[in-house]
Design a protein around this nucleic acid. Structure first.
Length: 140
DNA sequence: TAGGCCATCTGGTCCT
DNA sequence: AGGACCAGATGGCCTA
């Protein structure tokens, strides 16, 4: 789609950001690793095995009781259920973050890539792309 | 096998 | 008090 739109400068910076072989195919596809694709937060029950049922104690036990140096700050007491709920919310949050990354990937010229852009490369490429477009506007 | 990337868990902090 | 956000830790998967 971007073939007619892209000039050599653009190609340069695309290749700069991720110097990989030319793409064999157009869309980033099968390579997709297992991602947060389908309702990752649907199975709250699956979290129950984390550390939970330590003798039925309702407190959450974290791995490694570190972090109590100083001990001046009062730790927030959190139940297993609350921890699980927080985990689900966090997964949901990360899912929406990844959705935003996917959307950004689609807005950025990625034709030269065989692989799907990583998040960091997506950000870097977007920065360069925006700068490029800005310059283009200012110089015309 | 090492390194990169990612998902997930977790605890801390900030905000409502 | 509880949710959102964040960063660190950890482990799995994939590729060079």
């Amino acid at each position: 789609m971007q073939g007619h739109l892209v000039d050599p400068t653009l190609i340069d910076f695309v290749n700069d950001v991720n110097p990989m072989e030319p793409a064999a195919d157009d869309t980033h596809s099968p390579n997709d690793r297992t991602r947060l694709s389908d309702s990752p937060w649907s199975d709250l029950e699956n979290d129950a095995d984390i550390c939970a049922v330590m003798g039925g104690v309702p407190k959450y036990c974290s791995r490694g009781e570190h972090g109590h140096r100083g001990r001046s700050k009062r730790r927030r007491v959190i139940t297993v259920v609350q921890r699980q709920a927080a985990n689900v919310r966090e997964r949901k949050r990360m899912f929406s973050l990844n959705e935003a990354f996917d959307e950004l990937r689609r807005k950025v010229p990625t034709f030269a890539y065989e692989k799907r852009l990583s998040r960091i490369d997506t950000l870097r490429l977007a920065i360069v792309y925006i700068s490029f477009m800005t310059d283009l506007l200012e110089n015309t």
